[in-house]
Amino acid sequence: MAFTITCPVCGPRDGYEFRFGGEDKGPRPEAADLTPAAWCDYVHMADSRPGVQKEWWVHRQGCGAWFTIHRDTVANQEVSLNLLEAAE
């Protein structure tokens, strides 16, 4: 398996140039009235479902940009959003 990620700045590059940044969970919640369970859910918990998920990556050995892609975790392949929408 090779792995290619399309960086919004640099274009398609070898997957090892990037670092994974987690499932997309939305903006950070306010800390003040966060219950431990809600905090834990945001920080540690994940859906971990096989299939397509939206997730963050950073082009570590490149431009340094953080961005999201959709990736099929079963095939380990980036999925184009257009294809996804077309399939829905």
């Binding site: 918990m45 994940a46 971990s48």
Partner: peptide, 21 residues
């Protein structure tokens, strides 16, 4: 490795698990 995904799908349970190859 499929436990977390099953827990999520069957029971809506979220777990602090990353499944890696």
């Amino acid at each position: 490795a499929y436990s977390a995904g099953l827990a999520n799908r069957f029971l809506g349970q979220r777990l602090p698990i990353s499944v890696l190859t």
